[in-house]
């Protein structure tokens, strides 16, 4: 059984499919995410494919602070993804709320709503930084303590809140 787990883990490391979701960013981080997927930086080297649907994706790339309006949508998309799933907070706003942290319409960083595996700072993030964060996440899967938040603890999450 151990060898099967090892093989599946190998597949998981070599084939991370991402879903890009803008939770209220100013579009700068989104442009950088797209830049890292296009020929200049070519994330497909690591097996990354951009997917349109949460059912296919393994990694949720969230950019921007969570606004009150997008909060329930973010939760819904997170719930629609199949296990095992990882969340990357792309940019300063996604990590902590950034300059929008105290706005009346902003909930805060991504981790106020869903568990986050990796935080990538930057305003906006560099494509190099994004690739570095992604590779660090994948490298952590090899080790004993992967950056995998226990999504069973999502009972604490504000699911069903409008």
């Amino acid at each position: 059984m151990a060898i099967i787990k090892k093989i599946i883990n190998w597949g998981r490391i070599k084939s991370p499919w991402v879903l890009h979701f803008n939770t209220g960013a100013c579009n700068a981080c989104d442009i950088e995410i797209i830049a890292s997927l296009t020929p200049r930086y070519d994330l497909e080297r690591f097996g990354v494919l951009l997917k349109g649907t949460p059912r296919h994706a393994d990694i949720l790339l969230c950019s921007g602070p969570v606004t009150k309006q997008v909060e329930c949508r973010l939760l819904r998309i997170y719930e629609q993804m199949a296990e095992p799933k990882f969340v990357i907070a792309v940019g300063s706003c996604a990590s902590s709320g950034g300059v929008f942290g105290c706005c009346y319409n902003v909930e805060g960083g991504i981790d106020t709503v869903i568990p986050v595996s990796i935080y990538i700072p930057g305003c906006p993030v560099n494509p190099q930084a994004l690739i570095d964060g992604l590779v660090k996440l994948l490298a952590s899967l090899e080790g004993p303590s992967p950056c995998m938040k226990d999504s069973k603890a999502r009972d604490d999450l504000p699911i069903g809140k409008p």
Partner: peptide
């Protein structure tokens, strides 16, 4: 790798 990963998913 894609095939194996998809087999291992929920």
């Amino acid at each position: 790798a894609d095939f194996i990963k998809l087999l291992g998913k929920e």
